[in-house]
Write a protein that binds this DNA or RNA. Structure first.
Lengths: 132, 132
DNA sequence: CTTGACCTTGGAGTGGACTCCAAGGTTTAT
DNA sequence: ATAAACCTTGGAGTCCACTCCAAGGTCAAG
């Protein structure tokens, strides 16, 4: 299939696919006599893999490394486990941080309808001498 | 005080402060006869405000708008409430998404030491025909 | 006085993941 | 045949929040 078809099959743009190829995520594809890229169905799979990994928050660099290991025919489970473990720890940290922030902001929002502007809880959020 | 002193007082770099001024977050400061920027203590407060709002995930553009309202002498509580409400909704969404992701990744990690590579749960994460 | 730290300006660079542009060739449907 | 959609390449632009560079002036301590 051609790049437009691959793009449609994966909800990506042709430019993005060309970008991925340049970034080393996709191998150089076969070409038509006119120089057009010619992809097989395995390219759809590969892009789905990339998209799945992106959903998990992996950067393209990480995904490229995983793909490189996979392409050698060796088992990518250990590197995948390493990446997943790292990502899990990052996610836990991120969730914790967001929950703290959420609590702070909810508290600020609760305090807003008060006669005075709220105390600057997370820093000088709103200047205390300002009266609402 | 001079820009270096203001930077030290706020843990920002002089370049960042100059950047904020250019981005409209800080008013043009007074100058020394040599052309150096001269700040009063209110600049520290203003930068603390900015830093606090950034911690909440607000972009500089949003903070600039809030500051502009504040600078007119009107009460910024309603715009702040709007921003906070919006940010709360965004945070809730983000937390939910991260928690779903976390669960998926934990499940994938649990499945990894199995004899076969796990089924591609979030998409073709790992090609099923690959055996570990 | 000397030297090093500090300051100025305009503008370019960084990171990461795309997206757009220009110029021109190819394919497909009417 | 024609026109529009599709494709190619190299390279620049976008987003956002900084950070760095170059060239030169100013300040403060020794």
């Amino acid at each position: 299939m051609r790049i437009g078809e691959l793009a449609a099959a994966t909800s990506l743009s042709p430019d993005t696919i060309r970008y991925y190829e340049k970034a080393g995520l996709l191998p150089d594809p076969a070409r038509t006599p006119a120089g057009y890229r010619a992809y097989g169905p395995e390219a759809v799979d590969r892009l789905h893999f990339i998209q799945g990994a992106q959903r998990l928050g992996l950067r393209l660099e990480d995904i490229r490394n995983l793909l490189a290991i996979r392409d050698t025919g060796t088992c990518p489970c250990e590197p995948a486990a390493d990446l997943l473990t790292r990502r899990l720890a990052e996610l836990d940290e991120k969730i914790r941080h967001l929950e703290v922030l959420r609590a702070e902001m909810a508290a600020m929002l609760d305090a807003l309808p008060a006669e005075d502007c709220p105390q600057p809880t997370p820093g000088t959020w709103l200047t205390p001498e300002r009266r609402c």
